[in-house]
Structures are given as C-alpha cells and as structure tokens.
Write a protein that binds this DNA or RNA. Structure first.
Lengths: 197, 197
DNA sequence: CTCGCGGCTGACACTGAGTGTCAGATTAGG
DNA sequence: CCTAATCTGACACTCAGTGTCAGCCGCGAG
C-alpha cells in the first residue's frame, strides 16, 4: 500500500510534511484557502518558501495528499474480496474500506471535507485524483469477472458511478457532522441502482 | 436556453469571441495547451493580451466555453419529456439531447475531445462545469417523480452517474473518430445499471 | 455637424503560483 | 573523521490572472 519508509531520510521527510500540512491546514480553515499564499504558509511554518514548495508541489496538495492512498486501498480491497459477488457488492465493499481508511479522526475529516466543498480548486483537484484511480480500479474489477479484452464500457461506468457515490456519501456524512452511519449511507446510495423507479 | 442577443454590442462580442477561440484552438492543437501562453494567443489573434483576457477569463475557457450551454440543454430536455418514464430513461434521453447539441461539426468535436483528454487542466475544468450543472438537473429529475423535500441521495447518485456516462461515451466515441453511433453507445453505457452481473 | 457619453482597447503595474539554479549547511555512512 | 549525497534558503524567472488608467471609437442628442 505505502512504500517502505526504511530510510532515516524518508521518515524525516514524512514527519516534516505532516507538520507543515498541520500548520497550513489551520491557516486555510482560519482565512480561507484562496486567501492564503505560500509566503504566509512558509512564514507560519518557519521555513522558506522554497522549502515549503519542495514538500508540496501545489497548494491543493497541502490539503489533498491525505487522499493519495485511497486509490490503492480500493484496488487492494477489490482484490481481497471473494470474486463470486456481483460488481455492485464488490464496489460497495471496496468503498467501505476506503471510508474506513479515511475515518481516522472524525472531526479532522469533517473539517477537510468542509474546506474542500467550499473551495472549487480543491474539488477539481480531488476529482483529478479520482480520475487517476479509475483505470486501475476498472482493471481489478474486470480481472475476476469477465476477461481480458480491454476495459469494457460497462465496468468503466460502474466504477465511475461508484467513485461518484464515494464523494456524495462523504459530503452527506460531513453535512451531518459525522453523525450518520457511513455503511448505511453507502447502502442508500447504491440503492439508486437496484430500486426500480 | 441562451440569453437574448438583441444588442449590436452583444452580437459583436459574440463574434469576436468565436474568432479568438478559433485562432487559439489551432495554436493549442499545434503546440499543446500548456505550451501556449496568453502572449502567444493575443499575438496570433492580433489583439492585446489585456483584450484577450477580457474575452476569456482563463485559458481553459478558451476551449471549454462551447460546453457552457450543455447544462441548460439537459435540464430543458428533462422538462420536455413525458414524466411517466423511469429515471434512467429520462436521463438517457436528456443525454441524447446533449450529444445532439454537441455534435454540430463532428471533426471539430473529436479534435476538442482529444485535446481535453490529453490536458489534465482541461479535464479538471470540464468536471467542474459538470458539477455546477448537477444540482439543477437533480431538481428537474425529482420535480416530476417524487416530491419536494430536498435532493434525495438516490436522485443525486443517478444524475452523477448519468453525467459520468456522458463523458465516458464521448471519450469512446472520439476514440473511434466519431464513427460509432452515439445512441447505441448511450444504450451500452446505461446497460451497466440494468444488466444483472 | 458636433458634442458628450459609454464602452472598448491597449499599456502598464502588480500579486501570486510554480520552476529552476546555486552555494552553503547538514547528515548518512564508511 | 571524511566524503558524498541531500537538504535548505536565497534568488531570478515565467506566466496566469487582476486591476487601473488614459485614449479611442461609435452612437445618440441637441
């Protein structure tokens, strides 16, 4: 899932990254994403602008890098499942793995989702990440069901729909301050494909 | 659908905009979207950088403004339909209206889609537009079916899925140089929700 | 015809994101 | 302890996007 962080250097880098993100996140919530500049962030974190930019290529990544492992979580979950289920069940369970991974600190996630929702640039970048995950997820979904002749439109559509559900459900959940049960929300969302109406 | 262009000023502005976009589009296809600057575009079009920027707020809009009416087309189509159909049929037909609107010049659309596909910034911005359309589409879909207590998760998921289908189908169609039949492609995509597997 | 008025244009200045370079400090590892 | 790789801050640069300002052009009123 994550690359082996066996080097001293890697550990240090990872820790610094986390600290910079923590400081920056407070600023974003306080002032608003667009109003904060890299100069502000680097000053607040006590490093130079150059250094800050070296840890995060873009301002969006300062917030969204926490979602990077989600693609891997989903593909791994798809592989680990019993293959004798239908596509929708497998996708639903894979998404449940994803939300379980994300819900470490409930309050933290709610805040991040709120910040994302009210910042178009963050929404856009998040959707971009999602689009990067899609081909691999489609491949894993198909590997066990049908066969090997390129991604089928059916599978692509199902994966795209499932990923849409992920954000819709997370948005709904964040709107309730993390009160609602994510499993039930997933079920309610997937009902869109089984209810006749 | 489109605002009344009754002023001579509006007509002029619209025409200039189209011409600027035409010139710019050639540059993008020739050199690549990211490699072309506003300075290049304005020089090629024979206007100042300031003027060019006044016609298009962002570089992405130079390419994507042609998609602006699509949201309206979809909502209008949804309204115009007989309401005694199921959600999927209504969405499928609305999407067919959208693609009929887009397929004016086949070669033009194929080229644009190719440019978008290989330019992450354009993909991102297009998805942003799509997200703007969604709430209104959800409202129109629900107005006739169920009732009035806020957007249901079911409807939201279905609309999101349908919009995903739009781009998946257009991508597929562009990959075949506009040979495949868009109606059949839509049917094949929507089959993802009716096929049991 | 001409005068003024509103909008369009180009020139310019400015902020901020993101890239690249370079010299010096730091640290890993032999 | 020594060396080589890496990290850091400082700086310069390009380009997107915003805002301002003065001049121009067309258009209607007098």
């Amino acid at each position: 899932m994550s690359a082996a962080p066996v080097g001293t250097r890697e550990i240090s880098r990872h820790a610094v990254r986390a600290e910079l993100a923590r400081v920056a996140f407070n600023r974003f919530c306080l002032t608003g994403f667009d109003q904060v500049t890299f100069a502000d962030l680097s000053e607040a974190a006590g490093v130079s602008r150059s250094t800050f930019l070296r840890y995060f290529g873009t301002k969006e990544d300062v917030v969204l890098f926490v979602f990077d492992p989600v693609g891997g979580v989903i593909t791994d979950a798809l592989d680990a499942e019993r293959a004798n289920q239908d596509d929708w069940s497998r996708l639903r369970n894979a998404l449940e793995s994803a939300v379980r991974f994300l819900v470490g600190d409930v309050q933290q996630l709610v805040t991040i989702l709120g910040l994302i929702e009210q910042t178009p640039a963050l929404c856009a970048r998040l959707r971009e990440k999602q689009a990067e995950w899609r081909p691999e997820i489609v491949a894993r979904l198909q590997r066990t069901t049908s066969s090997t002749d390129g991604p089928s439109v059916i599978a692509t559509v199902r994966v795209a729909a499932a990923l849409e559900i992920l954000w819709i459900v997370l948005g709904q959940w964040a709107a309730s301050d993390g009160q609602e049960d994510l499993g039930e929300l997933l079920d309610a969302a997937f009902a869109a494909f089984s209810t006749p109406a």
